[in-house]
């Protein structure tokens, strides 16, 4: 019994890690631009594909690199390449799709719709270029089984969890301790006054997309290593769920994104284990609905007050 609980606990932690890493990106972009970046789930998918091509290229599948590089070296190179290229895609979308609308003072609704469309473009762009056949992610490092309290956990699963907390710690430090993080918080409160401090707004926005998209890319890589089958629509549902997790946690608060992601994962795993996996989403989302009814700003969210 206990070993099952531990086993399921690890499953939930792992799932929560993906949700949280993606939710953090939603949260940052929302915090800074008040934009719900609905393309973000698909950035996660892009991350998985970037990781796939980077890893297979390094393994020598396309010929321009000689095969024979050890798996762990490939992994060590794939991580930064994936994060950088994926954030490049995120920033590109911001520059091409969102910035022009923002400069014209378009209503936020149009930005959200644009984000939704960008997501669809990414999904079907992928389908058009790579076709419908699924890609299977190469295994780069051997899966080691680790015994924890009678349950066995793969090293990859553990890695996903550890990485998520490390990244959160780093992000928390950036947001609370650095001038750039301070500027991000300032933008989220009052975008208008930021240039008056001599801060180029664009730099802060690009930095935000860089952080969010690189975390989504990292999540994509970790996900692909644990569930090595990729398809163009893999980001859609995960993205929606991560977004909901961010809202339930209190969107705009990075602690909220972390807690929301794990909360959702624990709900899902618990429901699937005690009832059935068909009821999983129905019951867990009903509970989240209840939480939002009780506290519409989310767990960590605060209603904003202004002084005249």
């Amino acid at each position: 019994m206990l070993d099952t609980i531990i086993q399921q606990g690890f499953n939930a932690l792992q799932l929560g890690s993906y949700y949280s890493l993606i939710a953090l990106g939603y949260c940052l972009v929302y915090g800074v631009l008040l934009l719900i970046n609905f393309a973000h789930g698909d950035i996660f998918m892009v991350g998985a594909y970037v990781a796939f091509f980077s890893a297979t290229a390094l393994l020598g599948q396309y010929g321009f690199i000689q095969p024979g590089i050890p798996g762990w070296v490939v992994l060590a190179l794939t991580i930064p390449v994936t994060m950088l290229l994926t954030s490049g895609v995120g920033i590109f979308i911001e520059r091409v799709a969102y910035k022009p609308l923002r400069l014209k003072g378009a209503n936020r609704l149009y930005l959200v719709i644009t984000a939704l469309m960008m997501g669809i473009v990414l999904e079907y762009g992928n389908l058009a270029i790579l076709g419908a056949s699924r890609k299977s992610f190469p295994s780069l490092v051997p899966r080691v089984l680790i015994e924890v309290g009678g349950a066995t956990v793969t090293s990859l699963k553990l890695a996903a969890i550890v990485v998520c907390f490390l990244v959160f710690g780093l992000l928390h430090w950036v947001v609370t301790r650095t001038k750039l993080g301070m500027a991000m918080r300032a933008v989220s409160y009052d975008k208008f006054a930021v240039p008056l401090m001599g801060i180029p707004l664009d730099i802060i926005i690009i930095f935000t997309f860089f952080l969010g998209s690189s975390m989504a890319g990292l999540a994509g890589l970790l996900y692909a290593m644990n569930f090595p089958v990729l398809d163009p629509f893999m980001g859609a549902l995960v993205g929606w769920k991560a977004f909901i997790a961010a809202v339930v946690g209190g969107i705009g608060e990075i602690r909220g994104a972390l807690v929301g992601g794990f909360l959702l994962a624990f709900l899902e795993v618990t429901v699937a284990a005690t009832f059935s996996s068909e009821l999983r989403d129905l019951i867990s989302f009903s509970i989240l609905l209840g939480i939002l009814t009780w506290k519409p700003t989310g767990i960590f969210g605060k209603p904003r007050t202004t002084k005249i």
Binding site: K179, A186, S188, D190, A193, L196, G198, T306
Partner: peptide, 26 residues
């Protein structure tokens, strides 16, 4: 510099952080 109408201070930052932010590029 401009101290704008309605003050536009960053309410989510401390007083010290507000001042520090103004030195961003210095």
């Amino acid at each position: 510099a401009l101290a704008p109408e309605g003050r536009h201070i960053f309410g989510n930052l401390t007083v010290e952080e507000n001042l520090k932010l103004a030195t961003f590029a210095r």
